[in-house]
Nucleic acid binder design. Sequence first.
RNA 1: GGAGAGGUGUCCGAGUGGUUGAAGGAGCACGCCUGGAAAGUGUGUAUAGGUCUAAAGCUUAUCGAGGGUUCGAAUCCCUCUCUCUCCGCCA
Length: 422
Amino acid sequence: MLEIQRIRQEKEAILAGLAKRNIDASQTIEAILETDQNWRSAKTQLDQVAAEMNQLARTIGELFKSGQQAEASALKEKTSVLKTQEAELKVQVNALEESLQALLYTLPNVPNELVVQGREAEDNQNIFEAGTIPQFGFEAQPHWDLAKKYKLIDFELGVKVTGAGFPFYRGKGARLQRALIQFFLDEAIAAGYEEFISPHMVNEASGYGTGQLPDKEGQMYYVKEDDFYLIPTAEVPLTNIYRDVILPDGNFSIKMCGYTPCFRREAGSYGKDVRGLNRLHQFDKVEIVRVEHPDNTAKALDEMLEHVKNLLDKLELPYRILRLCGGDMGFASALTYDFEVYSAAQEKWLEVSSVSRFDTFQANRLKLRFKDDKKTTLCHTLNGSALALPRILASLLENHQTANGIQIPKALQAYTGFSVIE
RNA sequence: GGAGAGGUGUCCGAGUGGUUGAAGGAGCACGCCUGGAAAGUGUGUAUAGGUCUAAAGCUUAUCGAGGGUUCGAAUCCCUCUCUCUCCGCCA
């Protein structure tokens, strides 16, 4: 959520920024400013009436104390007019506040200066490539065939027990999955992130805190009985640890990581995009989350990019980094880098990580601030996948396949306990 | 799930209708005292908003959350929520 003060002061800059998302926000901004103006004047009136009421109540109290019943009763009658006024103004103020809030919720974050205007994936900027795309002397098999051949994943069984998008991992497939989680966590911990095991369901307030609510209810599984949402990413519980928190000084750098399953309804997805492991309703992910002083955000983002690069290097996978264009960025993000791994048999790039800075956008909703001398200032938040498992698994299988089996990268062998899947 | 007790500021803790944004204490910050420290002593110590060029000042709201009663609510009533104790159930 953008700060209202910022909209008042930097209207033009915000409009220019949002244009990079192909959004013409001028009408919304005008509506916001007008509502804000109306709200403020109504609020001022309400405050004045309330002040008068308070003054009267105090006087009445004193009169009663000194036994001047008649005078007190006379004053009491005066209050009835004020009371009606106050009630009316209160309704007005509340209504304006609500519509202001609703309008603010509709505005996405303003893109960083590095972000280019663009509409779709083709407009993203390729800023880095590493690794080599393997050449096979045989016909490479897609991961769903490999998974079946080596009995690593059973999609049909998942359909039977739950539904599409909820696969079973079995045998070495399960072991490989567990190895990856452990590997990712160990790497994150080595990089200074504190590990958390979080709840897998969150309440409504947390959904609002990180921006899943309102509007994206349809993306989350919802437990009606208890009003809980299944988390779509560990970002939600981890970031919400800092909801309604004021850090005591500006000297902080909070680094958290956590493994969780992630639940996504993915309503509207279909076709070959969802084949095999490409898109699941439940998948595993290790997430890294940071809360930073605004001065440190750029550096933190760089560190996170390096961290993910390092993971992919160790897994010996060919990958590239894209800086997302305005139209392809998430709602809350100011700057996002996507990591894509080349999947040798599907012959396409698969997104395996998304690293973003949100600046004050989430912090404003979360009310996450720090004390700076006497002022309280909003913190910055960042997060990134490090990494999401299914597509990593898919590309491991596809890129490291040989005629006789699947080679496990060296860095992983200590975790899997085997070096090849035959 | 049933019965009961409770949720007050950074912490402890008082407060059952009238200058209570909130006694008292601890902690913390700054000052005085001291050769230095401790002790002692003084002052300060929430958040969000409105008004204001800004600061100061003035003002509104906030004692788990929301609503209600009242001229006036931390204090009374209702709903929800969380914590604790006992019982029940249970990995």
